[in-house]
Write a protein that binds this DNA or RNA. Sequence first.
DNA 1: GGGCTACCTGTCCATATGGCTAGTACTCAT
DNA 2: ATGAGTACTAGCCATATGGACAGGTAGCCC
Lengths: 241, 241
Amino acid sequence: MGHTVLTVTKSPISVANRDDVARGRRAPQARTRVVVADYSSISRAGIRSILERSPSTAIVDEAKTYDAVLASVEEHAPDVLIIDLDLGDDTNKGLLVCNTVAERFPNTKILILASSVSELIVIEALRRGALGYMIKSQTTSDELIKAVRAVQEGETAFGKGIGALVSKNFGAPHSVTEQLTERELDVVKLTAQGLGNKQIAHSLFISESTVKFHIHNASIKLHTRKRAELVHRATAAGIIK
Amino acid sequence: MGHTVLTVTKSPISVANRDDVARGRRAPQARTRVVVADYSSISRAGIRSILERSPSTAIVDEAKTYDAVLASVEEHAPDVLIIDLDLGDDTNKGLLVCNTVAERFPNTKILILASSVSELIVIEALRRGALGYMIKSQTTSDELIKAVRAVQEGETAFGKGIGALVSKNFGAPHSVTEQLTERELDVVKLTAQGLGNKQIAHSLFISESTVKFHIHNASIKLHTRKRAELVHRATAAGIIK
DNA sequence: GGGCTACCTGTCCATATGGCTAGTACTCAT
DNA sequence: ATGAGTACTAGCCATATGGACAGGTAGCCC
């Protein structure tokens, strides 16, 4: 279905809209104002391109660092923040952004658009105020647009498979997910690189017993009993690369 | 820099071009014809959006399955195929696509646009005829456009960090990378889920010795001696999810 | 048939890992 | 300052894992 563009309106907002304002479908009334936070230029371009086809949304800004996200939300007070929690370094930081935005800017609804699924991250993000969670690779244009509309109206939006995770963890006691400590992280990273306890102990200047202790605790936090799965889950959660 | 769209040309090719033909910058002379293969709608939209800004490229088709890629390359004989090797199931299939395209359609240059870096995959893809390898999350719009131009002209294009991998493996004897067999894959997957040899043996109806045998062989192929690293590498290579 | 490969099984033994208990150092709120 | 909580350190012991053997079956290609 090819579309025809007739005119163009000069936009007051940087590169925020191209022909979307010009569709002539209706006057530029109340639009959902969106900030897109994603480290990848390609993803940002994709999200922009998709949302620009929808006359009900307008992208007011983009961000590619955690700081920039916060600054942008503060400046633009968007209706919806679309964010990939993994903005380069640490997914934990992404979770903190959820906290901050949810607390300080309750009018900005958070829609997570993640690169991968991790039960850990999903549950924790929702717990911290995100309303939606979609997986980039499994989200069609229409689904994305619908998800934005949903969270904008205060509803939830879950991508394929996410809903099941959510309901599974519905009655979960308290924090199903806990953060790994610095030391635990160090140890898990080295484990992923194939080092044994002895070698890890040596390279971190601690005893082998301590290495085992950290791995043990990290394992408890990620609900597993095997190093292989520990590494796998940590990777899936974006905790290690 | 807002641009102005004045007219639209009806395109013979489905959704292949929007306003790109209509930019009016110059006559639609020799353009680099591109097919984009990516499972993610968002990525495809992003790549399209970026390349449409370049007057020297035109996207003639999109594909989201391995079969569709081959069909599309056959039908459109593009100058460049931009592909994410991981089209859903198995990255191995992506590598096969490289083989096929490089052999049967030598005029189509292959540019890999991967979600993650894996030494394994990088080296293997280049060995099989890909000319460029970029990482989605670390590729800017300009870099993407330049990379397309480069491979179209028969040059190579490597994203951040990829060049180093390539030169490191320059004088590598023969196949640094080997494929895992079906059975090895089964075992590695279960290992990633935290099963022990005994449990794996039971769930695959084979003996524990055999499990160890497969893990041992898979470990050799992925150059490691620890299950944890085996799982990590297999994950990084996209061999398991 | 001979040379491949994938797949399967076993034993023996050294080492790595996981589960347990116990103790230290430090922060924080009472 | 006292008690609670948390990160960290440590030693002991059963089990899991990895390495080096030494085999056997079936299918495929030349």
